[in-house]
Write a protein that binds this DNA or RNA. Structure first.
Lengths: 247, 247
DNA sequence: AACACCCTCTCAATGGACGAGAGACCGTCG
DNA sequence: CGACGGTCTCTCGTCCATTGAGAGGGTGTT
């Protein structure tokens, strides 16, 4: 198309532009967008201009660009997990009210957990997960549940790459992982203490639909102490409620 | 570009494809996408294919297409209203727990209300609003609040077009609207009974940031009876809390 | 078997997208 | 002040990605 052939569709470039925006830096200059997306500044400027026209991006008075309302609207109104979220919300609220701290709903996407919803108390322990945020499967209790009840080849894929370590407590060897998954299946829940953060414990249970398939993980993050495990019954009850609501 | 000139950017076509998906019909065939977006089937097929490759759309085993996880992820992780939603969530939960039925957070977008979040009880009265759904300003209590405290020209723009009517109680004349807005400003809250649905009452209050600017509306939908107005203090308290959290 | 869909591939033609460069603008520093 | 480094957008010639028609293969219904 230009002097230098690229062999790439113009739609890909637009997606690269959209991918430049993160939770940490939701507002970028055009130059910054160009840098992150690896596009020529003029190209980035043009694409950003078009996306702004369509409302997928928005432009602030200081000329910085951010994800637009329309983008959020299009993605949210027809989100693939809308029915799951709707079914889960009341139970997530109850769980949060009873257990406090963080209550979360997560699903499997690719070989990672993605968090659909999170309710947090103001004085809660630290939590690195965010809504629409991802974590490696072996780092989070939700991920352990999804792995334990997921397709067998999933574990193989996860083990095909080195297990990223975040804290000294992180599972790092295949044997540890397989043993931990076996324990999850035996217990019916996953309890990870200090795997994300030294002072936090994550507890997750599977959410099953009417067919008994595990479609999500319901979890809480609480302080790492002896009472942590007492959240399990509330989690199990919530997961059953969600499953029933899924119809 | 082809035999027939269009004068339209190819990115526009991709956006048209994305806009084909709605909350009512989140899964479409390629032909249906083509019909809704006004594109040639071959073109729709190609664009859908590309969007699926990038994860913005997903394809089910039955070949129908739906909005993809990645689309939701990109839109949600850097959503323009993320900080507002995060600040509001705890108060929305409390409000919902106390008042029951529906508790909602909405902002102004264009000349419409768009709902950012909604917590609903299982046995709640009907409610037509959805998350990422829109309503005309004069139809919802949230819209009335946003109009009452919004820029003056907003009311003019709304009145420039005929006021759509949903139920016999809907405000339909400019005089009614201006009087109602004046009342909202006097009272500090908007109470709409039977404007969305005969048996439902909507009550909304403004959410102000540290500068005193109205940035959102906090509202509840409750059964239309004498106790409805008793939700006002809880709403006002919640709105103040959200404003303080916005920092 | 005929029909009515559906989807994707191929194809030639062409117009929209490309990157370089220039110009406009801003704020800062010496 | 003027030079400078930074931003962003516009123009422009080149040219390849994009386009719609049509074909071909598939599926499900009549």
């Amino acid at each position: 198309m230009p002097r230098v052939a690229t062999g790439e569709s113009s739609l890909s470039r637009a997606v690269r532009v959209l991918e430049a925006f993160t939770a940490e830096e939701p507002a970028l200059s055009v130059s910054e967008v160009a840098r992150r997306s690896g596009l020529h500044v003029a190209t980035a400027s043009r694409i950003v201009g078009q996306l702004v026209e369509h409302g997928l991006l928005g432009r602030a008075p200081d000329r910085t660009v951010h994800v637009g309302m329309r983008m959020w609207e299009l993605a949210s109104r027809a989100a693939p997990t809308r029915s799951l979220r709707d079914a889960a919300m009341p139970f997530l609220e109850d769980l949060h009210a009873v257990v406090g701290h963080h209550a979360q709903l997560a699903v499997l996407d690719g070989d990672e957990v993605i968090f659909l919803e999170r309710l947090s108390a103001r004085d809660a322990v630290v939590n690195y997960s965010r809504i629409a945020g991802r974590l490696p499967l072996h780092i989070s209790s939700s991920g352990m549940v999804l792995m334990a009840y997921g397709p067998p080849e999933l574990v193989d894929r996860v083990l095909a790459r080195p297990l990223e370590s975040r804290t000294p407590a992180t599972i790092t060897t295949p044997d540890q992982l397989r043993a931990a998954l076996e324990q999850v299946r035996r217990q019916g829940y996953a309890l990870l203490t200090g795997h994300v953060h030294p002072d936090a414990a994550g507890i997750a249970v599977p959410v099953r639909n009417a067919l008994g398939e595990v479609v999500a993980a319901l979890s809480v993050i609480v302080p790492h102490d002896a009472r942590a495990v007492s959240a399990v019954p509330a989690l199990l009850a919530g997961a059953r409620g969600i499953g029933r609501s899924l119809g």
